[in-house]
Simulated assay, not measured.
Amino acid sequence: MLSLNPIRALRQGALALVAAGALATTPALAQGQAAGGAPATFTTADLARLCGPHADNANTSALRPACYAALVSIGQVHAIYTSGRGAQRPVFCLPEQAPTLDTVSAAFVSWAAANQQYSGVRAAEGVLRFAAATYPCPAAPARRR
């Protein structure tokens, strides 16, 4: 089961600032702004569209780095909360040979398409759910009593 502690921490704004800054400059996000110019909630579906194939989109060169920035930011915030003193249990564990960003973004787009029930949740939660399903951590050894 996905631990909600890292998700709560992400919701408190650590990632929101990074992702908003990285994504606010993309045309895709500009179209998703609420009245008054305030950014709308950036969802899993929004990130999947940003990371998806863009053969017919003239903004492809701008979209790909924004996708990568969001994925890397979420991964780095996860690493901060799961290392050091008072660390939370990791939601996901990358393999020893880390996958490329192209591989992760393509897998995320496929996961999002297959898991439409999460399309409306915040992008950070969707990425963490994707990562937990795709890169599960080894089971912790049972404690002796």
Rank of each mutant, 00 (worst) to 15 (best):
T82H: 06
L15N: 01
G21F: 08
A113T: 14
Q33I: 09
R144M: 05
S119L: 04
T82M: 04
A20R: 07
V104R: 13
A28N: 06
L17N: 06
E125I: 09
L2R: 09
R122E: 10
A142N: 08
Q117I: 09
N57F: 05
I74W: 11
P65M: 07
G36P: 02
G13D: 01
A124R: 05
G120V: 05
Q88V: 05
S83K: 10
Q12C: 00
N57S: 04
L50S: 01
T44H: 03
A48C: 02
A20N: 08
A30H: 13
Y118W: 15
P141I: 07
P136R: 11
C67I: 14
M1I: 13
V121R: 14
R129G: 01
Y81E: 05
A139Y: 13
A19V: 15
G32R: 12
P65S: 08
P6W: 15
Q12E: 07
P65Y: 12
I80W: 15
T103H: 09
R64P: 02
A131P: 02
A139P: 04
A62D: 06
P136C: 06
A58P: 11
A66F: 08
W111Q: 01
R122M: 10
H78R: 13
V77R: 08
Q31P: 00
T41Q: 09
L71T: 04
L2D: 01
A114M: 05
G37W: 14
Q97K: 15
L23W: 07
D102T: 09
P99Q: 04
G52V: 06
T100H: 03
Q116A: 11
A69R: 09
L29C: 00
G36R: 11
R143W: 11
A124W: 13
A9L: 09
R143P: 04
G37M: 08
A87W: 03
A62R: 14
L63Y: 14
R85F: 14
A113M: 06
A38M: 12
N59F: 10
A38V: 12
T100C: 00
P99F: 10
A140R: 15
I80F: 14
G32I: 07
A9E: 10
L15F: 13
T82S: 08
L2E: 01
